[in-house]
Computed example of a mutant assay.
Amino acid sequence: MMKQFRDRKDAGQQLAAQLLAYRDRPDVLVLALPRGGVPVAFEVARQLHAPLDVMIVRKLGVPGQEELAMGAIASGGVRILNHTVINTLKIPEAVIDQVTAREQQELMRREQLYRGDRPPYDVRGRTVVVVDDGMATGASMRAAVTAVKQLQAARSIIAVPVAAITTCDELTAQGNEVVCPMKLDILYSVGSWYGHFDQTSDKEVRTLLEQASHERPGVG
């Protein structure tokens, strides 16, 4: 069996080693997908000497079939819709708006919880490294990267410690740069490649973001 990561910190350090071309560049910003992506991204940001922020993504689940996504919303007022699902199930616009409003409230609650009084970093014109702790289907990452593009980043790099090869190939084909130390033919569970994969708490997310902001004061 291939070597697994000890924990998210170890994974972040190994991932950072493949991103050193972006070290000490004033235009680089690291965005984490909470919650599990934050401890990984913290190590990446620290190694690259770059600021750290969060990109919160919320799935828009079909009412009654919440696991089925009819779209997603992300930080910065971005909404992406899956028109195939919407048209197939004939979901009315009012229902989509209702689900969007509910998830938008949760997104704002999390942003307030994680960021506190700190304003979000402006991604316009920046090179943005989007980090999660792993990528199976890549649905959340697709929403995050779409949001980053709509917010006018100059360039986005998807960075994950472990991912399914097919997902990496799909995202690369869509014009994204993907950095991933461990690409697997089949990825049933991201957690199985970590020695310790406990759920990251809201408190840990807040603590790491505060620590990162103190290490790199000021908003870009």
Rank of each mutant, 00 (worst) to 15 (best):
M135G: 11
A144V: 06
Y22L: 15
A21P: 10
A136D: 14
Q211G: 01
G36R: 02
G134Y: 02
V38Q: 08
M141V: 06
G220W: 09
R124M: 03
D132T: 11
Q14S: 03
L208H: 07
M182H: 05
L33I: 13
P120V: 08
R35E: 00
G12S: 06
T167S: 15
I165L: 14
C180Q: 11
Q150W: 02
T167Q: 12
D202Q: 02
D169Q: 15
T166P: 01
I165S: 12
M135K: 12
K183V: 01
L113H: 05
L113S: 05
D53E: 12
G195K: 04
T84R: 13
V178G: 00
P26H: 07
L113C: 04
P92D: 15
Q105N: 07
E43D: 08
V129I: 15
Q112F: 03
V40Q: 10
A69H: 12
D27N: 10
P119K: 15
M141G: 04
C180W: 05
D133P: 04
M141Q: 07
R79M: 13
P63N: 03
G77P: 06
N176T: 02
A45P: 08
L20T: 14
G191Q: 09
E215W: 05
R155G: 01
E93H: 14
Q14G: 07
D198Q: 13
Y188N: 11
D27L: 11
M70I: 06
A41G: 13
E67W: 08
Q47W: 03
T146D: 05
I96T: 12
L184T: 11
G64E: 01
D132P: 14
T100R: 12
G37E: 00
V44L: 11
G37F: 00
L31E: 03
V131S: 07
L81E: 13
E103L: 00
R46G: 04
D198W: 11
G77W: 04
M55R: 05
A69Q: 11
G218E: 04
A21E: 15
A136E: 05
I80Q: 13
A69G: 12
G138I: 08
A139K: 10
L60M: 06
D97Y: 03
T172P: 09
A72V: 01
L31H: 02
K59N: 03
V40I: 05
Y194Q: 11
C180K: 09
A164S: 12
E177D: 15
K203C: 01
T127I: 10
V131M: 08
V145M: 09
D169T: 15
V128D: 02
I165D: 14
Y114C: 00
A45D: 06
E93M: 05
A32I: 04
V145I: 15
D132W: 13
T200E: 06
M108V: 00
L48C: 04
V130R: 07
A139S: 13
I96M: 08
A11T: 06
V190W: 01
I80E: 12
D10N: 12
A173C: 09
Q4V: 08
P39Y: 10
A69N: 08
D97W: 02
Q47K: 11
Q14K: 12
V85N: 09
G125R: 13
Q4S: 10
H49A: 04
G195I: 00
P161A: 07
G76Q: 09
G175T: 05
L151S: 05
G134D: 00
